[in-house]
Design a protein around this nucleic acid. Structure first.
Length: 103
DNA sequence: AAACTGACTAATA
DNA sequence: CTATTAGCCAGTT
């Protein structure tokens, strides 16, 4: 079946406040195993003003991934800290903050 | 229709 | 720690 960017956005909307998810994790939940990259592609195409908590998506290392817009990584960090997510040595301890759906 | 564009990950050296 | 490699495709122009 065809998985569109909108489907990926739907998964990202499920991430609770104060939690983060990795690209690979979202890819898997969206039915796209091993296609983490496409999640990144979808986010880069995210329309301005879309109701998607994009800041809760980080890479597998708990770090913020680079993007075209300069300074955006700094803002992402700020937004996450406001939600209670802690950064240690420039990264998020995923064992504590990664979203675990269903459990 | 065809070319171009991108927020990744895991494995290996 | 860094570098390289293979795996992946919808949306926009």
């Amino acid at each position: 079946m065809k998985v569109t960017y909108a489907d990926i956005y739907d998964v990202i909307r499920l991430i609770p406040r104060g939690r983060v998810a990795t690209y690979g994790q979202i890819a898997e939940l969206a039915g796209l195993p091993r296609q983490a990259r496409r999640v990144g592609y979808a986010l880069s195409a995210l329309p301005k003003g879309a109701a998607v908590p994009w800041q809760r998506v980080v890479n597998a290392n708990g770090e913020i991934s680079m993007r075209a817009h300069p300074g955006a990584d700094r803002m992402q960090r700020k937004l996450l800290r406001l939600e209670g997510v802690v950064f240690e040595a420039g990264r998020i301890p995923l064992e504590r903050f990664q979203w675990r759906p269903k459990s």
